[in-house]
Amino acid sequence: MALDHMRMKGRHAGVSRPYFDARTGASYYRKNGEWHHLYRLIDRENDRYVETIKRLTTGEILKHVDEPLSEHVGHGSAKPRGVPSEPDEP
Rank of each mutant, 00 (worst) to 15 (best):
A78D: 13
P84S: 03
P68L: 13
S27W: 14
S77V: 13
H64G: 02
I61N: 02
V65G: 01
R40I: 04
D4N: 11
Y29V: 05
G76K: 07
V73D: 05
V65C: 07
R30H: 08
M1Q: 15
R44F: 04
R40G: 00
P80T: 13
V65N: 09
N46V: 07
W35S: 03
R30I: 03
E86Y: 09
A78H: 11
H36T: 13
E34T: 10
R81F: 07
P87V: 02
A26G: 05
E51H: 04
R23S: 10
F20Y: 14
T24G: 10
P84C: 05
G10W: 08
E67K: 12
P84L: 06
T57P: 00
R40N: 04
G76M: 08
E67F: 06
M1S: 14
H5C: 08
P68H: 15
H75E: 07
D21P: 03
A26P: 00
K54P: 00
R7Y: 09
P87H: 06
L56D: 02
Y49V: 01
R44G: 01
F20V: 10
T24N: 11
L56R: 02
H36G: 07
D88H: 14
G25V: 04
H5P: 02
N32E: 11
G14D: 10
E89L: 10
E89Y: 11
D66K: 07
M1K: 15
H72S: 06
R40A: 02
K31E: 12
D47Q: 06
W35P: 02
I53P: 00
P84Y: 04
A26N: 03
H64N: 11
K63E: 14
T57H: 11
V65L: 10
W35K: 03
K54D: 00
A78C: 10
R55P: 00
G33H: 03
Y39D: 05
A78R: 10
T52M: 01
I42D: 01
P87C: 06
Y49C: 00
A22E: 06
M1F: 13
E60I: 03
G14R: 08
I61L: 01
E45R: 13
L38P: 00
L69S: 02
P87I: 04
L69C: 02
L69Q: 00
Y39V: 02
R55Y: 10
R17A: 15
P80Y: 13
H72T: 03
P90Q: 13
W35D: 03
A78L: 15
K54S: 05
D21N: 12
Y29C: 09
R23N: 05
V65I: 15
N46Q: 05
K31P: 06
K63P: 04
D47H: 07
P80N: 13
G10T: 11
R55I: 02
K9C: 09
K31S: 09
V65H: 08
S16Y: 15
M6R: 14
